[in-house]
Design a protein around this nucleic acid. Structure first.
Lengths: 117, 117
DNA sequence: GTGTTGTTCAACCGCAAGGTTGAACGAGGA
DNA sequence: TCCTCGTTCAACCTTGCGGTTGAACAACAC
């Protein structure tokens, strides 16, 4: 649990069960038992998954009588999207510039990866 | 390696070294040796990281004499951003609607979880 | 041919992740 | 009070991951 925030978020969403939990929490808050019902694993395993999601900041748990409803915190998604967008844009920018260079060459060879006819 | 594509991509980016490799490949293609230079791990370890990135579709390797330049494939990012945006939007939409409901109530009680005074 | 350079394969090690079972804890309800 | 329900803690098992070393392989240079 000493990893940086970005690693925690990516790692938390690397598990299909946890992604499914997030998907269901996007619809409505739910308790651990409700969340565990559809899966054929124990409630304890789901509780562990929720701890991972909580440590990643993706989820929060409040107290309501003896239940502990789980709530999705969507803000952390920004961490990822910002990281992704940064490098995607950078890569695409580089690709575009390479494309321009190739296009501006006197005897231009076909663009790499383009028009696979 | 039997995981679904989304799990592979998230899992690949959960490692800080691999994210750094992606960041550097966004600037320019590079060989395994070049990529390994800044880190204090062996070239073999970096080669393994690249295999993970390649299996996730984030990277491709061509052949150029005895070198194997590594190239960033930015398209796979869309997989993630689409997944993230879907549930982020859903969660925000739900939050907005809940907010509307609370605002439209005649004798509005304090929002659940809000104002813990 | 014989190196030399760049890369990958194979076997191993330590450790954390996801799963289990069993017990404990916290808050109501009888 | 005692019991039940929902949840978490503790101990354990197995698997996978990131790392290592050592050898193999591929494409050049001599």
């Amino acid at each position: 649990m000493a990893a940086d925030p970005l690693s925690r978020v990516f790692s938390a969403l690397a598990d299909p069960t946890r992604r499914d939990i997030v998907a269901r929490l996007a619809v409505a808050d739910a308790t651990v038992n409700e969340l565990a019902a559809p899966y054929d694993v124990t409630v304890q395993a789901v509780s562990k998954h929720l701890k991972v999601l909580e440590d990643a900041g993706l989820v929060s748990r409040s107290r309501e009588a003896q239940r502990r409803p789980v709530h999705l915190e969507a803000e952390v998604f920004d961490l990822m999207t910002k990281w992704i967008e940064r490098y995607r844009r950078q890569a695409e920018e580089r690709y575009r510039r390479l494309d321009d260079v190739l296009r501006s060459m006197p005897d231009a060879p076909p663009a790499p990866g383009g028009d696979p006819s």
